[in-house]
């Protein structure tokens, strides 16, 4: 996760109650999604950014996970997401993020 985005997440966690924050990822790659999820829950594993050693424990989901999909407006989903659903591997992305969430997130939906 790039340094600016790490800072944004960190700022949001300081400004709002982390318990009420949910990070929704839209990565195209499962390996990347796993690292992003780990970063916001357990800290930056590359120790390069503002979240290095910072265990925010945030609740994190991939956009394709059922809990998030259920919240989305059907028309907006169709217009914005449905094409990429065919292009990407939603199952692998969901599994990658869910595994990190289970291991490191302190909060849930």
């Amino acid at each position: 996760m790039d340094l600016q985005n790490q800072q944004r997440i960190k700022d949001a966690a300081e400004k709002y109650n982390p318990e009420e924050l949910v990070v929704i990822l839209g990565s195209s790659d499962a390996e990347g999604a796993e690292i992003y999820a780990e970063t916001v829950a357990n800290g930056d594993p590359t120790f390069a950014g503002p979240l290095a050693g910072v265990q925010l424990g945030l609740c994190v989901y991939d956009i394709f996970e059922e809990e998030i999909r259920a919240e989305a407006d059907t028309a907006a989903w169709e217009e914005q997401i449905s094409m990429m659903e065919m292009v990407l591997d939603p199952e692998a992305l969901s599994a990658a993020v869910a595994a990190m969430r289970k291991e490191f997130s302190k909060y849930s939906l």
């Binding site: 195209s28 790659d29 390996e31 990347g32 094409m83 990429m84 065919m86």
Partner: peptide
């Protein structure tokens, strides 16, 4: 970790 970019583009066109 940036994927196969031309392949991703072709997949997007196919999905459309």
């Amino acid at each position: 970790g940036a994927g196969d970019v031309p392949l991703a583009n072709a997949k997007m066109i196919a999905a459309l």
